[in-house]
Design a protein around this nucleic acid. Structure first.
Lengths: 353, 353
DNA sequence: ATGAAAGCGCTAACAG
DNA sequence: CTGTTAGCGCTTTCAT
């Protein structure tokens, strides 16, 4: 059961191992006839180059890593709410990796633990990934960025909060998205619109709120006391916030929740208060997560291009993949991907009056 | 920027590289004093052993792979329903890997494509994982098992459909779970209980149905025509099935759906038909997935020990990790992990009469 | 266009 | 208890 190596293939094809190597890596300078022979031999032997050997000898590891915040991710996974964010990032990255013969590693990092330096340093030294995808909020961590820079590992920041020029970033305009949802509601005829914020640990929460505030202001609509309630992206928090909103003396006719789960909580709260959605109150969510369709009515929401973001990030990383120190650092790119308002059934014009 | 190697540490600590290696691997036969010195040097230099070198030279790769069916998984990820199954498996495995200094790779395989042999063979040859976690339905694929055996790669099958003795398996008793839910409903006083099946591509679907049928029979309750409806785990399918069930002339007083999403669909259908849950109809789900709490009332469901299953699998794999060919193959273990009925608010005694 | 030789950074056998 | 010597399977030079 000894593994088949490049030598076995070379022997069978009667060429040197270097030629086999060339063929396996699609390098030039191999005559078609040789290539044929090598391919035939490799196929017959069921040969596949050993990743460790390639990584050790060469300049690429064929590994892309996703860094996600440990406590946040474990929290999500454990509490079983919204492991979805990471899943979608994984989807995009996995797809691209598969196509390019790369492998994706999801690594959890204690991005503000006392030993981040040690942890991230060890990860980079051990794995030597050809690229790292940084998810929020780790993508804004100074130490992580510093370690990455120091190790010379290419990375892409996904939806970073701070825009300062540290490596390429891929993001979407959360402020504009917040504005667009609010304007959608205003366009429907709503004047009294409540807002439920997201977890403050995410930069996007603040951005969405800004969008809401800006849109209200732009249309000359006041935001009354108590119309902005704190949430943390969970169903429960949305439920509670909506209860408060709906029991206001002159309650809003529409609620914009910063996540779909909170929007579902709002829908449930409305149901309990015998207020129909969207008849009695319109509810809009955010994320276009799977759960946005798990209600009647289905939620109006905003689709974030998470899958596209991570697949683009992966492509950038794989494209420039090479630990080659002589290569000039890639120009810090800044990609803004479009979001999309998904108008479904949970929003409608307010009841007359 | 040159990476720090074992030689740098050895030089700084004034010992041989072998001693450094011993310390890094927690091997015996190192005096505390030496160990101290090495640790100090390693710390100061920020040294971490290169994974590729370890893998290439040694008998372990420090990599555990999860094989998941490509089309099914992509389907789930894309359609954004239930990427949850894999997420939970990832959670358990990730936790254990982190603890043991291992890395987790999720690989999608076309488990019934024409080139499985090639694909799986290449994956194993390239990665040389210390162990593979097989998820349904790939865990029942003859070719995949054969390739794994041939490569001598240890694996654990998670929730396999067929029990034949090929490697260790970890599972839960879906038939018993189906029975228990049904009996819970019967215990509440229900006599007319409808059932919504799951996606037939999963063995568990059939098992849950068997449990339902067995429980009904055991209690002398008839299953009338039309009480068993086909579903595919999705909200929509549950919604449609429940609509059919609820419009039956003498409709069931309880509905047992084989997944939480379908149960939510059933709750929605009941709402639209102005039937209260659980007042007018009780609804039970299955999986205790995140969404089971995204409704009012929250769903009665069954918690599958997926996280425990994958963490046990990972521990087994890491524990026996060693490509050491002299080691006798581990005894094929068969672990049955307990499920748990989670009684929440969606089930209650039927309305009197 | 092809090949020979020299490592990559580590662990596995052995010596001492 | 500690160190020496070979490779692991590949990619990189550098020849040819």
């Amino acid at each position: 059961m000894a593994a088949v190596t490049i030598y076995d293939v070379a022997a069978r094809a009667e060429v040197s191992i270097k030629t086999v190597s060339r063929v396996m890596n699609n390098e030039p300078n191999v005559r078609p006839a040789m290539r044929e022979r090598v391919l035939e031999a490799a196929g017959a032997l069921g040969y596949a180059p050993n990743l460790s050997a390639r990584s050790l000898a060469g300049s690429r590891s064929f590994v892309i890593a996703v860094f996600a915040d440990a406590s946040l991710t474990l929290d999500h996974w454990r509490s079983e709410r919204g492991s979805d964010y990471l899943s979608r990032i994984q989807l995009g990255a996995t797809l691209e990796c598969r196509e390019a013969g790369y492998h994706l590693l999801v690594e959890l990092i204690d991005h503000d633990g006392p030993r981040v330096r040690q942890e991230v340093g060890a990860l980079l030294a051990a794995l030597k990934p050809d690229g790292v995808i940084l998810t929020p909020p780790s993508c804004d961590d100074e130490i992580v960025l510093e370690m990455l820079d120091k190790a010379g590992t290419p990375y892409v920041r996904l939806a970073p909060e701070k825009a300062e020029a540290r490596g390429p970033r891929i993001h979407t305009d959360d402020v504009a998205a917040g504005r667009e949802v609010t304007e959608h509601l205003i366009g429907l005829g709503h004047r009294r619109i409540g807002f439920i914020t997201g977890d403050s640990r995410y930069g996007a929460s603040q951005a969405r709120r800004e969008g809401y505030v800006a849109a209200m202001a732009a249309h000359g609509l006041a935001i009354e006391d108590g119309w902005i309630r704190e949430g943390d992206f969970t169903f429960e928090s949305g439920h509670a916030a909506a209860q408060a909103l709906l029991s206001l003396p002159d309650r809003p006719t529409a609620i914009f929740a910063s996540s779909d789960e909170m929007a579902l909580g709002a829908v449930a709260a409305a149901g309990e208060a015998d207020i129909a959605v969207p008849g009695g109150v319109s509810v809009a969510g955010f994320d276009d997560s799977p759960v946005s369709r798990l209600s009647r009515p289905q939620l109006t929401t905003v689709r974030q291009p998470l899958v596209e973001m991570s697949s683009l990030a992966t492509r950038m990383l794989i494209g420039g993949a090479s630990r080659n120190p002589s290569a000039e650092p890639p120009p810090p790119r800044d990609e803004l991907l479009p979001f999309a308002l998904i108008h479904r059934a949970s929003t409608a014009p307010p009841a007359a009056g």
